[in-house]
Amino acid sequence: MEMDQATQAAAQPAPAKANAKTKTLNQGYWQKYGIFYLMMAPALVVLIINNYIPMIGGLIAFKNMTYASPSFFQNFMDSPWVGWDNFHYMFTSSDAWRITRNTILYNAVFIVMNLIVGVSFALMFNAMRNRRQAKLHQTIMFLPYFLSMIILSYLVYAFLNPDIGIMNRFILPWFGAQPIDWFSDPKWWPVILPIVNTWKGIGYYAVIYLAAIVGIDNEYYEAAHMDGATKWRQVWSITIPLIRPVIIIMTLLQIGRIFYADFGLFFQVTRNAGALYDTTLVIDTYVYQGFLVTGDIGMSSAAGLYQAVIGFILVLTANLIVRRISKDDALF
């Protein structure tokens, strides 16, 4: 237990004239709980490398980064502070408005789709008479959730390939429509992306809402049935009100993350086509593009910090509201 003694000495420098009683108490504490600190150490190291050092590194948004040394830490120290210059530069470009608009509008549509489609699917699952069939459909519907964005991009490409894709070769001619150059015409993507996102995620939301519906006591329905309520009426007067907390919480949690876009969806499924940026560039893809392709560190780190701070405020607010509704469901 030498390690424990050492940790103790480092963490709690006891005053020189500490009385004997406190000392034995302390010794008891470290003997009992010292092991806890050792258990937490590996994860703490990862958190420091992966989260906390980059958080401090986020301050490069206020710097004009130079690359004199191969070491990031040295460069960070050496680069001059430039105040709000990077932010000023970013917000005066037309991109700031575009990426903010796209991020929020897409996420808003995703949230509404997840809510309406998710709850409807859950209600229909619950109404199905054949349990085994309901289970089968549930399993199949969950499949897209397990696929990576790369695979999704393949599937979407099989449909939208301008020359030989299913849409241009099969579906559009069937309706007598002209082929569309999907990967260079931005106006279709506000429809395509919500469909893809819902297709991928709906198995998850349906399962969550179904779990809430299954938990409702059957007696409510029986009583309503005796009073002559139709099935439709029961849904609106019993099911929906009783799963309302789950609906509100799920939705608020998504609203809290409305400032973060799904990088994979916007990067892979659109194949990062520049011609589509007007309707597909979101904050996350903008940061990537600006940083790793254009090489504009100042502007992209400013955009990143802008996202982190607004996102932080939104998560806190959403959580505060969730806490008001149901303390148990709040994140903290």
């Binding site: 958190l47 980059p54 590194g57 986020g58 490069i60 070491s71 460069n75 790793l292 990143g304 996202q307």
Partner: peptide, 22 residues
């Protein structure tokens, strides 16, 4: 310490620089 990592995300640029150049 663990909660805060869920709430606040440092973003791509410093993350990348720490892993690659740090």
């Amino acid at each position: 310490i663990i909660f805060f990592t869920i709430l606040f995300n440092s973003g791509l640029v410093p993350f990348y620089l720490v892993y690659k150049q740090g």
